[in-house]
Each structure stands twice: as C-alpha cells, then as structure tokens.
Nucleic acid binder design. Structure first.
Lengths: 211, 211
DNA sequence: TAAGCAATCACCCAAAATGGGTGATTTTGT
DNA sequence: ACAAAATCACCCATTTTGGGTGATTGCTTA
C-alpha cells in the first residue's frame, strides 16, 4: 500500500517542491499540503498520514508543539522535521517532542526518499551530523567562573532543592550553602535563583539535565 | 611524531589487549597503562598523552569525574571512552564532561584505529549508534499524568522561577500557578518542588533540559 | 612567605516564597 | 451534558531567600 504523506511548510516553494518530488515516487502518496499546523491538525484524522513532513518555523503553532499534538492524535505516524541544520536547540527540542527524524531542506530526491524509507523501516532516521550537533550542544564549557563546589550548589538549586536540603545532601551547614550562593550571585551578577540558572545554562556552566 | 596514548581500564585483559593492539600501529605510542584514575592523574604531566582511553566503570574515581579532571589538567588531550554501550545515562554524562568520543569494547583493530584517527583529526568520533542512544534518552514519555499546562508550570519551577515570576511569564494570576502546583503535588504524591522535579524527571514527563 | 582563593561556618534582619486548606467560575473537549 | 482543565481568591503559619558583616582553615602560587 502506498504511504500517505502530508507536508506542513509555510514556504510555498519548498512545500510544492517537496510535493512534486515525492509524487514521482511510486510508493508514496502526498495526500495534503498545509502552510500551518492548525489546519493540518484539524484534518489529521481524515488525512491519516503515515509520514508528516514538518517545518520547525511556522506561523502560529510551531513545529515542535505541532509534533507533540500530532503524536498524541496519531501516535503511529512518523514526523520528519524539515530543517536547515542551523538551530541545534530547536532540533533538540523537536527530538524530545517525538520527532522521528530529519530531512535537510536542500536534499535531493534520492536522499529524501532514503530518509523516508529509513523512517518507515523503523530505523532511526537521524543523520550522524544531526546527532553530533545535538550531543555537541551538551558539552560543558570549560571556562566557568564558578568553582566546582559552586557549580555543584547551583546544580542542586536547579533541581529545586532548598538551601537546607542542599546543606543536608552535601554534609555542610546551611550557612555554607548561603555563602556559596552569595558568591555565585556576585560572580554571575544576578540576585535570584532563576537568573543564576539562566546565565549558567546559557553558558553551559552547569550540566543541562538534572542527574 | 608518534601520538602518546595512555589507557585507564581496570580489566587487565581489555587493558593489555588494547595496549598490544595499539602498539602494533606505527603512529601510536602507548606510554602507560593504569587500572585507576588516581594513578593516571598523578602521572599525567609526565605521560603527557595526546589520547586517553578511559573506561567508565572504575574503582575509586569513575571515568566521568576522571574525564573532567583530565581535561582540566591537559585540555588538549582527547579522552575516548571505552564503553559497552549499555548505560545511555553514563554515556551522556561523559559527553557533558568533555569526552571526545567512544570506542566500543569489542572493536577490532581497524575500527579502533579509525576512531582514534578521527579523534585526532578533530572530527567527532562518535558512532551513529551512540549518538542515537543519547538522543533517544531525551525522548519525552507520552503517558504523563500532568496536563500540558502543569508540565509547563513544572518546567518553570525547574528553572528556579518563583510562583510570581511564572505567573507573569504565563500571563495568569499567581493564584492560578499555586493551584497548578497543588494539582501537580497531588498527582505526583509529593509536597515539595525538589520532589516533584525528581519524579517528573525520572519519568521524563518534563524535558530534561531547562530551555 | 605573603597574598589569594576556596571552603567552611555564624548571626542579624526584613521581605518574599511556600504549602495547605476551601472555595469559586469559565472554557474546552468528548 | 458531563468531565476535565484552566482560571482566580482568601485564609493561615512556616520556611526560604537575599543582603549585610564578619570569621577560620587550608591550599596554591607568585
């Protein structure tokens, strides 16, 4: 049976281009084209796609939120993100949202078909370059102004712990933790937990994920 | 000039095996073998390695902490983790710690040499399977008991924001946020921010990384 | 050796945040 | 139409937080 494909992409050239290209493939059937998620979502049951090609940058609901809803509606469909490999943050978030893989915008027909077939076959349709990019984005920077202990404390703050709890966990006095916090605030030039976490995170001075 | 290599691995068979194999390569020089990080660290300046092959599971300081200190001592050296591809959590953490790549324990000579040469060449010596595994570990679970709004609120909590700040950001009253928190606590059967974050994180009900 | 940094701890204070309770209304989706 | 979700309000006591101004110990490095 031919695989049903829908394309959600606001750039009409790219949208029509992909569509034209995919329609030449025997085993595919492009059932619908959309320039936004909302319309696609409201037709999703009728379209009943096997594959969704989704742009990340979209007017209204973006491709990440769209992916979440799409997977909720029809969990068996595979969402492939159409990307230009620029924003590793967005790529990462769409992965978390349940995207099944990627298609690079300037791919040629055979690459696109290969990606889709990989996805259909259940393999992880993720190119090495994308995986590397995402993983790369987790590398900790080495030039943090924070000491190891301060990083540890900030990490605990990011886990929502109170000063007292951190003190217990690190076997020191609450006052010691307070001192560390004060030093962290001074070094990062902030005066609240949220700001400290934001600064430290954007500079990758702490590990992004609570472990 | 021959590249200086040290191997840190507590299993003597693997350690000696790698050493023997690498010594047959013209461009490599295995300068030392260790069965723990501590000894390796104290000799690091003398050994002055270009490449460190490091096991993750080690007695005493583990390979992740070892990687951090190693990179701090000699930032230019490349740490390659010797792994059996089992624990995606550990793999992820070693990436964050600054590991430059991976070598699978059962690799044959040509694979090992290829990985090391890739690392030396500055490429990211990471197999697709490892990258996939790590990225996979970030997939959000779909069966969260939390609503979208509640997830959003918990996410903000994990960013260290106060109820007032969250209320401002989401354009609702502080009381609304408090209600959401109460519902979150009830659903997760906890009664503190830290516990809620811990539960939600271990079940991947929130995206692991603060964005 | 002296200076500097890191890590530890203490006490003061006022403002803010938190957790729990008990309500309510409106919107949304099925 | 019913249930779930999202919104808001006011009560209460306790804890947490941020800022200040100290101090001691140990390590490193100029």
């Amino acid at each position: 049976m031919r695989k049903r494909i829908i394309i959600i992409e606001d750039n009409s050239s790219i949208r029509e281009g992909f569509s034209a290209v995919l329609d030449t493939v025997e085993s595919y059937e492009v059932v619908n084209l959309y320039d936004n998620c909302e319309d696609a979502l409201s037709n999703i049951d009728k379209d009943n796609p096997d594959i969704v090609l989704m742009d990340i940058e979209l007017p209204g609901m973006d491709g990440i939120a769209g992916t979440v809803r799409m997977k909720k509606q029809i969990p068996n469909c595979i969402v492939l993100i159409i990307t230009v490999l620029e924003d590793s943050e967005k790529v990462f978030r769409s992965l978390c949202a349940g995207a099944g893989g990627y298609i690079v915008k300037n791919s040629n027909l055979s690459e696109i078909v290969q990606n889709i077939d990989e996805a259909l076959a259940g393999g992880a349709p993720m190119s090495l370059s994308i995986a590397k990019m995402v993983v790369q984005s987790f590398r900790q920077q080495q030039d943090s102004p924070l000491t190891e202990r301060e990083t540890e404390v900030l990490q605990s703050i990011a886990q929502g712990k109170s000063y007292s709890k951190i003190a217990l966990d690190l076997f020191v006095s609450k006052e010691t933790i307070r001192t560390h916090i004060k030093n962290i605030y001074r070094k990062l030039e902030v005066s609240s937990k949220a700001d400290a976490i934001k600064i430290a995170n954007s500079n990758k001075w702490v590990i992004g994920r609570p472990l």
